[in-house]
């Protein structure tokens, strides 16, 4: 554990919490892509199967449980409790265009041809593109509430911080995971355009349009 990784994890935690709080407080999930949320839940469900096979640390276990519960909680709020506020007409990104290539890639490029390992690889690749339905929705409606922007910023910052963590781990431990690093870079790059708008607009109090 290093400072980049810790702040990255906390940023991820913060992103999930502000999304849940936004939906809960406003009693609405307008502007949020349910498809991205389903992809994130799938990411956690396929990556954290190791909860059943081996223990890493209490921190690791608790964070995994939190991410799993909160992502399924978000889906429940969007598709059940506040279903009427879900903006489904604008949430039209075709997720099969992500799922199929990601599934094929994970079968070809993995560390080991083993069920758990392939599912872990699938989750890493899927996470890198899971935000696309959300970004597509923002571009389609042409705007995002500032709370949605804060959510996206915290979520993007998390993987960016993980890149710093990998650089640090490479020099201190010789740790290098090519799959995670490439996917992490792709994931961070997808947020770059959004980061630019966030810094130039949202932080100056303007709406993201």
């Amino acid at each position: 554990m290093n400072i980049f990784r810790l702040i990255g994890d906390l940023s991820h935690l913060f992103a999930i919490l502000i999304l849940l709080l936004k939906i809960w407080k406003t009693r609405s999930c307008a502007g949020i892509s349910g498809r991205s949320q389903i992809l994130f839940a799938l990411v956690f469900a396929t990556r954290y199967l190791d909860l059943f096979t081996h223990f890493i640390s209490l921190y690791n276990t608790l964070m995994k449980i939190f991410y799993l519960c909160s992502s399924f909680g978000t889906i429940y709020l969007m598709y059940v409790k506040f279903k009427a506020t879900y903006d489904r007409n604008h949430d039209t990104f075709r997720v099969e265009f992500l799922l199929i290539p990601v599934a094929i890639l994970s079968l070809i490029f993995n560390h080991e041809f083993d069920v758990l390992e392939i599912l872990w690889t699938f989750s890493i690749y899927l996470e890198s593109v899971a935000i696309l339905p959300q970004l597509f929705m923002v571009s389609k409606t042409g705007e995002a509430e500032s709370i949605t922007s804060h959510y996206l910023f915290a979520l993007g910052a998390y993987r960016g911080l993980y890149i710093l963590n990998w650089i640090y781990r490479y020099y201190t431990e010789g740790f290098f995971d090519l799959i995670a690093v490439i996917a992490g870079i792709v994931q961070t790059v997808l947020y770059c355009d959004f980061f630019y708008l966030y810094i130039t607009k949202v932080l100056k109090g303007k709406r993201l349009t």
Partner: peptide, 10 residues
């Protein structure tokens, strides 16, 4: 080898 695949990150 086993250790390499101990994915300790989240």
């Amino acid at each position: 080898k086993e250790n390499d695949l101990d994915h300790d990150e989240l």
